[in-house]
């Protein structure tokens, strides 16, 4: 039964990183929405939010790609994004990017429809999860942009706490950047390496089996560093983890 204010149909913006590297995570988010009784539309013309170009200072290129996304989501449905970072780009920076241009109003209207996935599941869908998995201890990594641009701090933890057999342990440096930063990781490789090394240590200190996150950029960085050092810990996108738990 859809609760009041819950839409019948949503758009899903998969993000380029999920599209190319973590499609299962993207699909899991869609599946969670579908099981909640929501029709999920995945526009074929979507690609990337444009953040890499914007953050590198290539505004014209960012605008070209951003405009293509705006055009690909014409209906007034919410746009759900399985990434706080890409959602933050679309919600907070699309309006800035088109400031003083003919597309400004369109960009603002688009931005107002953007939701981060876990925020949407908690605050709009009011989802209820039944855990069928084995006991497991996990820790949470919130991405900087999900926390500071999208205000996503407690929503994913609320979802994890719904899982009866999952123990969520906090890690010591939860609010500190993992060092990914898009092109930062390859532009400032030594600093990024130091940051991710500290992040992995803080996560390992929790003794959790897995780190769960809502952003695949951070996950690629963190699990990549864990893999390289032979850490026993793994990482997973929250959508995929939740689906795995409810499926048992």
């Amino acid at each position: 039964m859809p609760s009041s204010g819950r839409p019948d149909t949503v758009y899903y913006f998969g993000t380029c990183l999920v599209d190319l590297f973590y499609p299962e995570a993207g699909l899991a988010g869609m599946e969670l929405l579908k099981r909640a009784g929501i029709r999920v539309v995945f526009p074929a013309d979507q690609s990337c939010c444009g953040q890499p170009a914007r953050n590198s200072g290539y505004f014209d290129e960012a605008r070209a790609v951003a405009l293509r996304q705006i055009k690909a989501f014409p209906q007034p449905w919410p746009i759900v994004v399985p990434s706080g970072s890409c959602a933050g780009m679309m919600k907070t920076h699309y309006p800035d990017l088109f400031e003083g241009r003919p597309e400004h109003e369109e960009a603002k209207a688009f931005a107002s429809r953007v939701f981060e996935l876990t925020d949407f599941l908690v605050n709009v869908v009011n989802i209820r999860l039944t855990d069928k998995g084995q006991p497991l201890t996990v820790t949470w990594h919130g991405s900087c942009h999900s926390m500071r641009e999208m205000g996503v701090v407690d929503q994913p933890k609320a979802l994890l706490r719904q899982l009866a057999n999952v123990t969520l342990v906090e890690n010591g440096r939860e609010k500190e950047c993992c060092g990914f930063g898009g092109t930062f990781a390859v532009r400032q490789p030594e600093i990024s390496a130091a940051m991710v090394a500290d992040k992995v240590t803080a996560l390992e200190d929790t003794k959790a089996a897995r780190v769960i996150s809502g952003d695949c950029g951070c996950l690629m960085n963190i699990t990549g560093a864990m893999g390289k050092k032979g850490s026993p810990m793994g990482g997973q996108h929250i959508a995929q983890f939740l689906l795995e738990r409810v499926d048992g």
Binding site: Y12, F21, G26, L27, F42, A185, A193, M220, G224, K228
Partner: peptide, 26 residues
Amino acid sequence: WTSVRTRPRFAAKTLHELARDKGYDH
């Protein structure tokens, strides 16, 4: 990237393809 991390692997199929395969409105 790989100086301190493993190499990320491209998926076999994109989310675009998987979404269509699973019958989502595309």
